[in-house]
Computed example of a mutant assay.
Amino acid sequence: MYAIVDIAGQQFKVEAGNEIFCNRLPVAKDSAVEFDKVLLIDTDGQIQLGNPYVKGAVVKATVLADDVKADKVLVFKKIRRKGFQKCNGHRQKLSKIRIDAIA
Rank of each mutant, 00 (worst) to 15 (best):
Q85C: 13
D67E: 07
N88F: 15
I99A: 05
V68A: 07
I41F: 07
A101L: 01
R81T: 02
V27S: 05
F84M: 01
K29E: 12
G9N: 05
D6P: 03
K37M: 00
Q11L: 04
D100I: 01
N23K: 13
K77V: 07
V73E: 08
Q48H: 12
V27P: 10
Q11P: 04
N23Q: 15
V33K: 01
R24W: 08
G83T: 04
N23H: 12
Q10H: 10
S31H: 12
R24P: 01
Q10D: 09
I4F: 12
D44K: 07
K13R: 14
G45M: 12
M1Y: 10
I97V: 14
A57S: 11
K72T: 14
F21C: 01
G45E: 10
G9V: 08
D66N: 15
A70R: 02
G50H: 09
L25N: 02
V54Q: 06
V68N: 05
I4E: 05
I47W: 06
F76I: 04
Q10L: 00
A8K: 10
F84C: 02
Y53N: 02
K60R: 15
V68I: 15
A103P: 04
A8G: 08
T43F: 03
D30A: 11
K78A: 10
Q46M: 13
K60D: 05
P26M: 07
K93T: 06
A101S: 15
F76D: 03
D36R: 00
A61I: 02
V75W: 11
L39H: 07
V63P: 13
M1D: 03
R98I: 00
T43M: 04
P26F: 01
F21H: 13
A16F: 03
D6Q: 15
N88I: 13
A57K: 04
I4M: 12
N51E: 11
S31A: 10
K37N: 10
E15Y: 15
K72E: 12
V75A: 05
M1W: 04
R98Q: 14
Q85D: 07
F12C: 01
G56I: 10
V75R: 10
A57H: 13
K72F: 11
G45W: 08
D100F: 00
N23C: 04
K37W: 00
A61L: 15
I97L: 04
L25H: 08
Q85E: 11
E15N: 14
A32C: 02
F84H: 12
A32E: 06
K93I: 13
G50V: 02
H90C: 02
